[in-house]
């Protein structure tokens, strides 16, 4: 079992796709989250929070649906929604193919929301059709986004949960993850899981609660 992975020393301690396992000191591939040549352990949101380098493509895949959701709240047409995605992307990646989140900007979810709000205002100013006066645009945008706040919160919660589940795989041993997954996610009985994994039913429940507690911590961490 490979845990507590060390970065390669010859890589100057920087994250790489081949890293040393602390237990057996052999090189193993670390591929989770690695897209477009940028590799980071765990979920993208955890990497954003740590201030790791994030690739354009992984960011786009992850946040496009959330930005589109905001576009729907603003009643933008499909072309405008796509433009909103591009404008938000450009503000994160204006000079580079990658970005590192500056933690002094506060919670990433609030920062992302602020960027979307600003870019939506730009978009509505550009489109200005006389329906709303230019001065009223920021307030109108804020009001429309507030109406969809519950949906955004729900989507964000799902996003965080998905990211935390991804992180859970590397945060607990494979056996603990498997027992949790089979019992809680796949709905197998404790006896079935025990027989499949060759462990006692008691151990299945111990592992389930170990994973659940870790998952709760990870959720607090990635969303904190």
């Amino acid at each position: 079992m490979h845990r507590d992975i060390f970065p390669r020393p010859e890589n100057g301690g920087k994250s790489s796709f081949l890293e040393f396992c602390k237990n057996c000191a052999i090189l193993i591939p670390v591929l989770e989250g690695g897209i477009n040549g940028i590799y980071h352990k765990g979920s993208l949101l955890a990497a954003v929070k740590k201030g790791d380098e994030i690739s354009w493509q992984s960011f786009y895949d992850m946040y496009k649906p959330l930005i589109l959701l905001k576009g729907s709240d603003l009643r933008l047409n499909q072309t405008e929604k796509e433009e909103l995605v591009q404008l938000v992307m450009l503000s994160f990646f204006n000079t580079s193919q990658t970005f590192c989140y500056d933690k002094s900007k506060g919670r990433f979810r609030d920062y992302l929301k602020r960027i979307i709000h600003n870019k939506a205002c730009d978009l509505m100013r550009k489109r200005h059709d006389g329906e709303i006066s230019v001065e009223d645009i920021p307030l109108t945008v804020e009001k429309m986004l507030a109406e969809g706040e519950n949906r955004w919160e729900e989507e964000w919660k799902n996003h965080v949960l998905k990211q935390a589940l991804e992180d859970l795989r590397s945060a607990v041993s494979p056996l603990v993850y498997q027992a949790f997954s089979m019992l809680s996610l796949e709905g197998m009985s404790g006896k079935e899981v025990a027989a499949t994994l060759g462990i006692t039913a008691n151990a299945v429940y111990v592992y389930k609660h170990e994973a659940l507690n870790k998952l709760k911590t990870l959720i607090a961490e990635v969303d904190g």
Binding site: S189, G190, A201, N202, V204, Y205, V206, K208, H209
Partner: peptide
């Protein structure tokens, strides 16, 4: 009784 033990008890997964 520990939480995991209680969990297995209520799911009839113990002796």
């Amino acid at each position: 009784i520990s939480i995991p033990e209680l969990d297995s008890y209520r799911n009839c997964d113990c002796s």
